[in-house]
Measured scan of single mutants.
Amino acid sequence: KQVQVGDEKYTFDTPEEARKFAEKVAKEKNLKVTEKNGNFHVE
Rank of each mutant, 00 (worst) to 15 (best):
H41V: 15
E28P: 01
K29I: 05
K20S: 12
Q2N: 10
T14W: 02
K36F: 11
A18D: 04
A26T: 02
E16G: 07
Y10N: 02
K32N: 09
E43Q: 09
R19G: 06
K32L: 11
K1I: 15
F40A: 06
E35L: 13
Q4H: 15
N30C: 12
V42G: 04
T34L: 11
K29F: 08
E23V: 00
F40K: 04
K36T: 11
P15S: 13
V42E: 04
E17D: 11
H41A: 09
E43D: 12
T11K: 07
T34A: 08
A18Q: 01
K9T: 14
T11P: 04
G38V: 00
T34H: 11
Q2Y: 15
K24Q: 13
K9W: 15
K32M: 12
V5H: 05
V3E: 01
P15Y: 15
V42P: 05
N37W: 01
K27L: 13
T34P: 04
L31R: 07
E8Y: 12
K20G: 08
E17F: 01
E17W: 01
D13G: 09
Q2D: 09
E8P: 03
K29V: 05
K32A: 11
F21G: 06
V5I: 13
T34F: 14
T11R: 08
V25M: 12
N37K: 06
T34S: 10
G38Y: 00
E8K: 14
A26S: 07
F21T: 05
E35H: 09
E16V: 05
Q4N: 11
T11V: 13
V33A: 05
K9A: 10
A18L: 02
V42T: 05
E17K: 05
K1E: 03
Y10I: 05
R19Y: 07
E16Q: 08
K32W: 07
K27Y: 10
E16S: 08
K27P: 01
V5Y: 10
G38Q: 02
G6L: 09
E23G: 00
E8N: 12
E16L: 04
D7T: 11
N39D: 11
E35C: 14
F40Y: 11
K20D: 14
A22E: 06
V5F: 10
T34K: 09
N39R: 10
K20V: 07
G6Q: 06
Y10L: 05
G38H: 03
K24F: 07
K32S: 12
D7F: 08
Y10H: 07
A26H: 01
G38N: 06
V25G: 00
A22W: 05
A26M: 04
L31I: 06
A18E: 06
R19S: 06
E17S: 07
N37T: 02
A22T: 00
P15T: 14
V3M: 02
E17Y: 00
V3G: 01
K24M: 13
P15C: 14
Q2I: 15
K27S: 11
V3F: 01
V5L: 08
N39Q: 13
K9N: 11
V5C: 14
E28I: 09
P15Q: 13
G38T: 01
E23R: 00
T14Q: 04
E8S: 09
K20I: 12
K29Y: 07
E16P: 00
A26Y: 00
K29W: 04
R19E: 09
A22P: 05
H41I: 15
G38D: 06
L31C: 13
Q2K: 09
E17P: 00
Y10W: 10
F40H: 04
K29E: 10
K36P: 03
Y10V: 04
R19P: 06
V25N: 01
T14K: 02
E17R: 00
E17N: 07
E23N: 03
L31S: 09
K24A: 14
V42A: 04
L31G: 13
H41T: 12
V33K: 03
A26I: 03
K32C: 14
T34E: 08
V42N: 04
V42L: 10
K9V: 15
K9H: 12
V5A: 03
A18K: 03
K1W: 15
P15I: 14
G6N: 08
N37V: 00
E43K: 07
K20Y: 07
K20R: 13
T34W: 08
Q2F: 15
E35S: 08
D13K: 07
N30L: 07
E28A: 09
G6E: 07
E43Y: 10
N30V: 04
L31N: 04
Y10M: 05
H41Q: 12
K1T: 15
A18V: 00
E16W: 02
D7A: 09
V5S: 03
Y10S: 01
N30T: 04
V42F: 06
K36D: 11
F12Q: 01
Y10A: 02
Q2C: 15
E23Y: 05
T11D: 10
F12M: 01
E16Y: 03
V3K: 01
E35I: 15
T14C: 10
Q4G: 04
D7P: 08
F21V: 05
G6Y: 07
E43I: 13
K24D: 12
N39G: 11
K27F: 12
E16N: 05
V3N: 01
Q2P: 02
E43F: 10
E43N: 09
N39A: 12
G6P: 02
K32T: 13
E35R: 08
K27H: 11
A18Y: 00
V25P: 00
A18H: 01
E16C: 12
K29L: 14
V3A: 02
N30Q: 09
E43M: 11
P15V: 15
V33L: 10
V25C: 14
A22L: 06
V3T: 02
E8I: 14
G38E: 05
K9D: 06
N39L: 07
V5T: 04
F21N: 05
N30M: 08
A22Y: 03
R19C: 13
Q4M: 14
E28W: 00
E35V: 14
E35Q: 11
K1C: 15
Q4K: 10
V3P: 02
A18T: 02
A26L: 04
D7W: 08
T14G: 05
F21E: 05
G38A: 01
T14D: 13
